[in-house]
């Protein structure tokens, strides 16, 4: 029975992966055909810049969720990284030292999460809700409610610019490189297999020679590092360091990952689906915004998609069960 169950579950997830990619393609085609200005190269640049933080944070988040944990502190890490960047820039530090420091800060914040979850064995949901508040609070302590602007134009121009005279935004390189790195790690290395093994059964993974604690710790470090990078890119994109940068973004990231067919219970998921989830979320929001739907009303779409992404496969499965 259990083998059968695993088989149907596996095919269900494969189906969902194909389905989400198909839905994304359909949405892109429909939006390009019906929404004015959606298909323009200028809008493509905006779309990529808009999904940039969600896209890169969703990559390590996928690995974290596949191990059965969660990291809700990512948006606060982004905010703290941005605030520290602004603070150091105000102290007349050179941007060449600030950026590595912000990345290091992100990694340290991730390590703090990892310490609480793996060394102290506390539930990651509670830990990262705590650090969500802690890191965002520290961001406000560092920068207050002021904003720091006037970052060097060469850096801000690179983030908002395109490759040569092509319409391809520079930041797409970052997304693609990170996606390939995390994709290869998850789907083609022993680390990736360990991630799936830990998510399916931590005890079994331990007996098979995996050290779940160490694995999760480094995944949290990766999650923090990428969130720190997202903070730097966010600051440069808007040329504005603020303590509330990216507030609430963690929900959109989790929504994109779950939409991509990753099971919140761990053990199942694939990176191509997650990337499709990010593109679907981003292009839907972009298309609706071009159609003059208010930003807040877009929340309805995000919420419905999030629930539907888990409910849909469940209901389909149940219907199949009834038919049999």
């Amino acid at each position: 029975m259990s083998a059968e169950l695993t088989a149907t579950r596996a095919s269900r997830f494969a189906n969902w992966n194909v389905a989400i990619i198909a839905i994304t393609v359909v949405v892109l085609i429909v939006a390009a055909a019906t929404v004015d200005n959606f298909g323009t190269s200028e809008n493509f640049g905006f779309l990529v810049l808009d999904v940039l933080p969600i896209a890169i944070i969703a990559l390590p988040m996928t690995l974290v969720i596949v191990t059965g944990e969660i990291d809700l502190s990512v948006a606060s890490t982004l905010g703290l990284s941005s605030a520290v960047m602004g603070y150091l820039w105000n102290q007349n530090q050179p941007i060449e030292t600030i950026i590595p420091l912000c990345l290091l800060l992100g990694a340290v914040l991730g390590a703090v999460n990892g310490f609480f979850v793996t060394v102290l064995g506390l539930p990651s949901l509670a830990v990262t809700i705590g650090t969500l508040a802690l890191y965002r609070g520290l961001a406000f302590v560092v920068l207050g409610d002021s904003a720091v602007a006037d970052f060097p134009p060469s850096y801000t121009a690179w983030v908002t610019g395109t490759i040569g005279s092509t319409p391809i935004p520079n930041v797409l390189i970052i997304i693609v490189v990170l996606a390939i790195v995390f994709g290869v790690i998850l789907h083609a290395t022993p680390i990736g297999r360990a991630v799936f093994a830990v998510g399916a059964s931590e005890q079994a993974a331990r007996f098979a020679g995996v050290r779940p604690g160490r694995l999760k710790f480094w995944l949290y470090v990766a999650s923090g590092l990428v969130s720190g990078l997202a903070g730097v890119l966010w600051t440069l994109r808007y040329s504005s360091a603020r303590a509330d940068n990216g507030a609430g973004l963690e929900l959109a990231v989790v929504a994109a990952v779950l939409l991509g067919g990753v099971s919140i219970f761990g053990g199942k998921g694939a990176l191509p689906g997650v990337i499709a989830g990010v593109v679907l979320l981003g292009s839907l929001q972009n298309a609706l915004r071009l159609s003059d739907v208010s930003n807040e009303a877009l929340n309805v779409v995000t919420g419905v998609l999030l629930i539907a992404s888990v409910l849909g496969p469940n209901l389909a499965n149940r219907l199949k069960g009834w038919k049999q």
Partner: peptide
């Protein structure tokens, strides 16, 4: 009945209910 974890459901309705209020 949807068999969806509470974290996911209520994250979703957090968005939906707020969006409805804004609408």
């Amino acid at each position: 009945y949807g068999n969806v974890p509470a974290l996911v459901v209520t994250l979703g309705t957090l968005y939906v209910v707020r969006g409805v209020t804004y609408f």
